[in-house]
């Protein structure tokens, strides 16, 4: 059996070594990528703990509990970075994308390795759906926090509101993909649609802030 910790070590060690030889934005992105992977494994531990204590089945945990745990963990990692390094708007984007990519990559690796041989189509759909979904929710979180910071209304209500929104998107995705057939197809398409919408909003908001 391949343990998730072993996968983490295999991927993380080369990246950690690479930090010695890279600088600037590349170094930041690598650190964020590693953070994303660590956040992913911690989320899995916490969700596993809740699954044991609540008595939920694995499917119910993925529908009800995982979105909450994962989004809270991702938000905490971004908030931690924001309070420690006080990043600019561009750096917040970098943090969000890096953590999101790290999180999605590690989750996909573990799933593919644990499920054994899988079809290429499934792997492709999984990558395009879950991979995109984690990035979308994190970028949305970061975008919300950027705006709160820009307009100097960085309040608990705003942050909690943006977090709840990302939990809802994640929860809806997990609910849709839990049933095979049409619901799962809609679920797989959903992150891509959200990514396109978010891209449009992102460029629009950048223009408005510049105004």
């Amino acid at each position: 059996m391949i343990y998730a910790e072993n996968v983490l070590i295999c991927i993380a060690v080369p990246f950690t070594i690479s930090l010695l030889f890279i600088k600037g934005t590349a170094r930041w992105l690598t650190v964020c990528f590693l953070t994303g992977m660590v956040v992913c494994i911690l989320s899995a531990y916490i969700a596993g703990f809740f699954e044991m204590t609540s008595g939920f089945s694995a499917e119910d945990t993925s529908i009800y509990l995982s979105p909450i745990v994962e989004e809270v963990m991702k938000l905490l990692s971004i908030l931690f970075c924001m309070f420690i390094i006080e990043p600019s708007d561009d750096e917040i984007d970098l943090l969000a994308v890096g953590i999101g990519v790290g999180f999605a990559t590690f989750e996909n690796c573990c799933l593919i390795l644990s499920s054994g041989e899988t079809q290429l189509t499934y792997v492709f759909i999984r990558g395009a759906a879950v991979g995109v979904m984690h990035i979308v929710t994190l970028v949305a979180l970061a975008k919300g926090m950027q705006l709160l910071k820009t307009y100097k209304v960085f309040s608990l209500a705003g942050v909690a509101g943006v977090l709840s929104l990302s939990v809802t998107v994640h929860g809806l995705y997990n609910l849709l993909v839990s049933k095979p057939g049409l619901p799962s197809y809609i679920g797989y398409v959903m992150p891509m649609v959200c990514a396109i919408l978010l891209y449009m909003v992102n460029s629009e908001s950048d223009q408005c802030i510049e105004k």
Binding site: F56, D60, Y64, L65, P67, I68, L148, V153, S155, A157, G158, A160, G161, V162, L163, S164, L165, V167, T168, H170, G171, L172, L175, L176, S178, K179, P183
Partner: peptide
């Protein structure tokens, strides 16, 4: 709506739609 279609007559323990309502209230307040 999706929950009602996919899991009819099943109780929602802690559901994302409640998070959605919570998000709406918080974002409106902000």
């Amino acid at each position: 709506f999706v929950y009602d279609v996919l899991k009819p007559d099943t109780r929602m323990p802690i559901a994302a739609n409640e998070f959605g309502e919570c998000a709406m209230i918080l974002l409106l307040s902000a």
